[in-house]
Nucleic acid binder design. Structure first.
Length: 440
DNA sequence: TCTGGGGTCCTAGGACCC
DNA sequence: TCTGGGGTCCTAGGACCC
């Protein structure tokens, strides 16, 4: 038996923990650069604000409907997430952290009334973190996801499903008829793995609800669509094709990209930005104990600026020898950037991706016989990782930008190209100088 | 004026090999 | 008058997730 636990409207709920005045009000959280809505309170959903909707399209609701917008504060959300996850982990032998606000739990062999356990888990998370969650149980991960959707929707829109399914829903407790009714009341696009494109194609075949899909033939759908759909249908039938993975593998790629607050036209600024992005991904790379075999860099104009000439070049530069040294990676990234940059364009975005990742070799890595060793002084075996370790330790202790490679150093004062973040709340739980203050 | 960021997996097609 | 067949590997792009 699987459970899916997820936080309702995660980012908005995190903000509300520290600002209870936001309760009951329409609230959205904006993406980097304050560009689009990436989280909505129920009240904001009721106003018709769509997921990923551009902020400028809904900002008028500030005046007309009291909509409140906040800049994303991922440091806060990440910390709240780890608190929630550690509480949820106590309730089952195995946990898979699936995203910042969701985890799967494997209840195989756990005795007792699962709905009661689910309610206790909910209560505990709410009491200890202030975050509201929903819990769905099912015989497969896909069914648990669906049960979670039912639990959430039954609470948010009374009448859409039987009331007793609200907050915590266990499909195993439903009769065949009750389950069929719930599936009929749910659109096929709500199923995990069925996205926009597939929904449209399924609709053309007359498959509109989850029940329609479940009644289809898995193998035939597999041939017509893809093996992904086939697996999904089998999971909906109750045949588990997916396991709870509590030991996730290291990432296969690590990326950092950002839209600019204002268009960038010159190479020096792009070099600075790309160097900063590379510093970040290099740090993440070392954190997971990997080295990168190649660096991929891209810059792009904005497709929304119809009058601008468009240009979205990218380049991948293989490293002679895989590395996790920020200096090596920056030098490759900047070389790639110089290769693709063309003057005369309004660049709106840039990104750096580390690819071809492999575990950091211990002592006996095969050296590159033909390498010209044009690496920074001291970048040879041993001292490289020592230097990077020292860099990471200093930044850990004195703040993220305490020490950096010169080309990635922040200039003093805010730059025009820096992402807009005009409405960010304090990082209450991770910065002592921003801690919440209680007033008598 | 203003439109997110960071991932995974699958598939089709080309290059290459014998 | 004539142009194989079967296999693997790699890559780019698409679809999906949150």
């Amino acid at each position: 038996m699987f459970a899916l636990v997820d936080v309702n409207n995660m980012y908005v709920s995190c903000e509300r923990v520290f600002r209870p005045a936001l309760n009951g009000k329409p609230v959205v959280v904006l993406s980097n650069n304050d560009g689009a809505c990436i989280a909505r309170s129920n009240e904001a959903k009721d106003l018709g604000v769509r997921m990923a909707q551009p902020w400028f399209e809904v900002r008028h609701l500030q005046r007309t409907a009291g909509l409140i917008a906040l800049s994303a504060n991922f440091e806060l959300y990440g910390d709240m997430s780890s608190r929630m996850m550690s509480i949820a982990a106590r309730y089952a032998p195995r946990q898979e952290i699936y995203s910042i606000d969701e985890c799967f739990l494997d209840f195989d062999g756990v005795p007792g009334d699962l709905v009661a356990i689910g309610r206790e888990l909910r209560r505990q998370v709410l009491a200890w973190t202030g975050l509201p969650t929903s819990v769905g149980f099912g015989a497969t991960k896909t069914l648990a996801k669906l049960a979670n959707h039912v639990a959430k929707t039954a609470e948010r829109k009374p009448g859409s499903y039987p009331g007793e399914l609200a907050q915590v829903c266990n499909f195993a407790n439903l009769s065949a008829d009750q389950l069929a009714a719930a599936m009929q009341a749910t659109e096929v696009g709500e199923v995990w793995g069925i996205g926009r494109k597939t929904t449209a194609r399924l609709n053309e075949c007359g498959i509109r609800t989850v029940l329609d899909l479940v009644r289809g033939d898995a193998a035939a759908l597999g041939r017509q669509f893809s093996v992904v759909i086939e697996k999904t249908v089998r999971e909906l039938h109750g045949t588990a094709c997916l396991e709870v993975n509590d030991a996730p593998a290291a990432n296969q790629q690590i990326m950092c990209s950002r839209s600019f607050g204002a268009p960038v036209t010159d190479l020096p600024t792009l070099i600075e930005v790309v160097s900063q992005f590379t510093s970040q991904v290099a740090h993440k790379l070392r954190d997971q104990g990997s080295v990168a075999g190649a660096v991929h860099v891209f810059i792009a104009t904005s497709p929304y600026r119809r009058n601008d000439r468009q240009h979205a070049p990218s380049a991948t530069l293989p490293l002679g020898r895989p590395s996790a040294d920020t200096r090596v990676l920056i030098s490759a990234a900047v070389r790639a950037l110089r290769g693709v940059f063309r003057p005369g364009f309004n660049y709106a975005k840039a990104g750096v991706m580390l690819v071809d990742l492999q575990p950091q070799a211990q002592e006996h890595a095969t050296p590159d016989l033909f390498a010209d060793d044009a690496q920074p002084e001291g970048a040879a075996r041993g001292s490289r990782s020592d230097l990077m370790s020292a860099l990471d330790a200093l930044n850990q202790r004195f703040g993220r930008h305490a020490v950096s490679v010169a080309s990635a150093a922040r200039r003093t004062g805010p730059s025009a190209h820096a992402s807009k973040q005009d409405r960010r709340s304090p990082r209450y739980t991770t910065r002592i100088e921003e801690i919440a203050v209680a007033r008598a």
